[in-house]
Computed example of a mutant assay.
Amino acid sequence: MALGYKARRRWSLVILLIGLPLYIVLAVSVVSWLGRPPILVELLVYVVLGLLWALPFKFVFRGVGKENPDDSQG
């Protein structure tokens, strides 16, 4: 079942406003669990975790910033 434009916009807001802060807390918890590794390792962990969160939601964010294709004007 494909999501419509408005549903993708709503889900993207939910993901960014609720899911992303929760994921940030999780990422910081993972790094603190590692016991404060060297700064380059810590940076690498944050970069990898920062990229991994978006992969499952790529289909939701695709085309959200563009004009609504469902509007038939003209």
Rank of each mutant, 00 (worst) to 15 (best):
R9T: 03
V41P: 03
G4R: 02
N68C: 07
K58P: 00
R8G: 00
Q73F: 06
S72V: 08
S72R: 10
V14A: 10
G50V: 03
V60D: 01
L51D: 00
D71R: 09
P56M: 03
P56I: 08
V47M: 06
I39F: 13
V48I: 14
V25S: 10
L49R: 07
R9I: 12
D70K: 03
L44V: 09
L26Y: 15
M1Q: 08
G35I: 14
D70E: 02
L34D: 08
G74S: 06
M1V: 15
L51Q: 04
L22D: 05
I24E: 03
V64Y: 00
Q73I: 04
Q73R: 09
Y23Q: 04
A2G: 06
I18M: 08
E67T: 06
P21H: 11
V47P: 00
V48F: 13
I15C: 11
L55E: 08
I18G: 06
K66T: 03
K58Y: 08
S12Y: 00
L43N: 06
K6A: 15
Y46V: 01
R36A: 15
V45K: 01
S29R: 06
P37W: 12
L44P: 02
V25C: 13
S72F: 11
L40Y: 13
R8W: 04
G35S: 11
K6I: 04
V48L: 15
V47H: 11
S29W: 09
V47N: 07
V31K: 08
A54S: 04
G74D: 07
I18F: 12
P38Q: 10
L52V: 01
L17I: 06
K58V: 13
S12W: 02
M1T: 11
S72G: 09
L16C: 07
G50K: 04
L22G: 11
L52A: 11
F61G: 00
I39W: 15
F59C: 01
S72D: 14
E67Y: 10
W33I: 10
P69D: 05
V64E: 01
F61Q: 02
V28E: 13
L49A: 06
G74V: 06
K6H: 12
F59T: 06
L55I: 10
L34H: 07
V41L: 12
A2S: 14
S32D: 15
P38N: 14
R62Y: 07
V47G: 09
P37G: 12
Y5D: 03
F61V: 06
F57E: 03
S32H: 10
R36L: 15
L52N: 01
I15R: 03
I24V: 12
V48P: 01
D70A: 04
L3V: 13
F59E: 06
I15F: 05
S29F: 05
N68M: 11
A27E: 08
G35H: 13
R10N: 04
V45F: 05
L3K: 14
G4H: 07
A54W: 15
G63N: 06
V30G: 06
V45T: 12
V64P: 00
N68I: 05
A27H: 02
W53H: 02
V45P: 00
L16D: 13
L44A: 12
K66L: 12
L44Y: 09
R10M: 05
I39C: 11
R62N: 14
W11Q: 10
R10T: 08
G74C: 04
V45L: 05
L34R: 09
G35K: 04
V31N: 01
V25K: 10
W33Q: 13
R9D: 01
G4S: 10
V41T: 11
W11L: 13
